[in-house]
Structures are given as structure tokens and as C-alpha cells.
Amino acid sequence: MKCLSCKSDTVVDGTTTFFASLPNCYVIIENVPCKKCSQCGEEYFSSSVMEKIEDILDKVEHIASKIFILDYHTAA
């Protein structure tokens, strides 16, 4: 895979922290699998990972009060 930002061929598997701002809270999801450009740091998520993130955000939105931090592998 080529990086869409810098056009480098050095995109590798990695993990990242995903931040979301919902109407009633902030959500931080740690250890989210991604593809990461080793040159510029741009991160890419697969469609299956994005679907799981959306599911997590839908559930959290109804139970969180202000800030919610969770691990991707525990919640997915």
C-alpha cells in the first residue's frame, strides 16, 4: 500500500489511539489496529476496524458521562 499523503511505500501494520467527540462525551479508544506510514505518520483504518469503532461509539454514547477510555481489543 502506498501512503496517500506522502506517496511513500513504507506503510506498515501498527496500532494507534482513536479520539472521538460525541455530543455528550469524549471517547478515547487505545490500541486500534491500523496501517501507518513510517515516513509521515499518516494512519489508515480498514473498513472492518471502522465498523467496530462505529459500533463501540454507538454503545458508549448511551452510557458515558464525560470521558470514556477503553481498549479496542477488549471492546471489539
Rank of each mutant, 00 (worst) to 15 (best):
S65A: 09
V27Y: 06
C6Q: 08
D71S: 06
D58A: 14
F68C: 07
Q39Y: 08
S8V: 09
S8Q: 10
K7E: 08
S65D: 09
T15H: 11
E30P: 01
S38L: 11
V11H: 06
C40V: 12
G14F: 00
E42V: 05
K66I: 11
V60G: 07
A20K: 10
D9W: 01
I63W: 02
A64L: 07
D55K: 11
D13N: 09
A76I: 02
E61G: 12
A76W: 04
V12W: 03
E54F: 08
A20Y: 00
D71Q: 05
I53V: 13
C3H: 06
T10V: 05
E54G: 01
V11W: 06
V12P: 00
P23S: 13
L4V: 04
C34W: 02
L70G: 15
L70D: 09
S38T: 03
E30A: 03
S65Q: 11
D58S: 15
S21M: 02
D55L: 08
G14I: 00
D13K: 03
M50E: 10
K52L: 13
S47A: 15
I63G: 03
K59I: 09
M1F: 13
T17D: 05
A20C: 03
V60K: 05
P23T: 10
D9P: 06
A64D: 07
V11F: 10
N31W: 00
T17V: 14
Y26P: 00
G41K: 06
S65I: 11
V60S: 08
C34Q: 02
K36V: 15
K66H: 12
D55G: 13
A20M: 01
F68M: 09
E43Y: 00
P33A: 06
D71Y: 00
D71I: 04
T15E: 15
S48D: 14
Q39A: 12
P23R: 12
E61A: 09
K7D: 07
V32A: 04
S5R: 14
E51Q: 11
G41H: 07
